[in-house]
Design a protein around this nucleic acid. Structure first.
Length: 266
DNA sequence: CTGGGGACGGGGCCC
DNA sequence: AGGGCCCCGTCCCCA
């Protein structure tokens, strides 16, 4: 997996010359996350949905479908795919890829939807309300669908735009940020999945190095890099070769050492 | 080839 | 539940 697969490439593949950028390092306001840059990527905004049997409406046999949309203007499946990326910063373009959702939805006053749950016949005025209610049936359905002797079927939430799947909604939402990249550097436009990643990146512009080595006073912008640097002061490095007992300050150095032939593969 | 710095991503924990 | 933060790790580049 490429290291920077999560980072949008707005420019060339070459890394920005931060030394040059530093010369223009006006004080960068710490005001992030910022709105997404207007790119064509908006068209690939995520629609992620869980793969629990309850949620796989495309594979669910029709008689089991728990949703009975009454309004004629309803989408085929109010429940799925669940749209987890409907944050204000990413809601502008995401409907475009989703077939019949390209236009703004009609106002609730214009069309009064009624959504029934077939499990308990309760009615809801919106798909989301029904979807929320459906979650209360989720554990029941899973118990019903799990076969004897089968490993428990924990809900697997998977991303529509990559093969990754997660067992918790929170983990999936965190992953989605790696696609939406809502944190954009105001200086160079590079986008990041998390605010603290952007903060670290902004230090490359400002030259701020808040992490200093107690031994040599060398300063670093990244705590991980300081930690790696501290290994260089250590007599016995953290990573040891199994063949020659040589130690290295970094795992990558040990890997390179092994790759160079110290520990030839059998 | 080796050592080290720079940049950054993911998972997990804590609040 | 969500955001912030930390730790661990990886990859790239350069001396």
């Amino acid at each position: 997996m490429p290291r920077s697969f999560l980072v949008k490439k707005y420019f060339s593949n070459k890394k920005p010359k931060y030394s040059e950028l530093e010369s223009q390092s006006a004080v960068v306001p710490e005001c992030y996350p910022l709105a997404e840059l207007p790119t064509q990527d908006n068209g690939s905004a995520l629609t992620c949905y869980p793969t629990s049997p309850l949620f796989r409406m495309d594979t669910l046999p029709a008689p089991l479908s728990p949703i009975t949309p009454v309004s004629p203007a309803l989408p085929p499946s109010p429940l799925g795919p669940l749209d987890l990326s409907s944050s204000p910063s990413s809601s502008s373009g995401e409907e475009e890829e989703d077939g019949g959702r390209t236009s703004d939805p009609p106002s609730p006053d214009a069309i009064h939807h009624v959504y029934h749950c077939l499990h308990c016949s309760k009615s809801y005025s919106s798909p989301s309300a029904l979807a929320h209610h459906q979650l209360s049936h989720c554990s029941q359905v899973e118990q019903t669908l799990s076969l004897p002797g089968q490993v428990s079927t924990r809900p697997a939430f998977h991303c529509k735009h990559c093969p990754k799947e997660y067992t918790s909604l929170g983990a999936l939402k965190m992953h989605i940020r790696s696609h939406t990249l809502p944190c954009v550097c105001p200086t160079c436009g590079k986008a990041f999945s998390r605010p603290w990643l952007l903060r670290g990146h902004i230090r490359t512009h400002t030259g701020e190095r808040p992490f200093s080595c107690q031994h040599c006073n060398r300063a670093f912008a990244d705590r991980s890099n300081l930690r790696a640097h501290l290994q260089t002061h250590s007599e016995v490095k953290k990573y040891q070769c199994g063949s020659c007992s040589r130690t290295f300050s970094r795992m990558s150095l040990l890997h390179k050492h092994n790759a160079s032939g110290c520990c030839p593969a059998p």
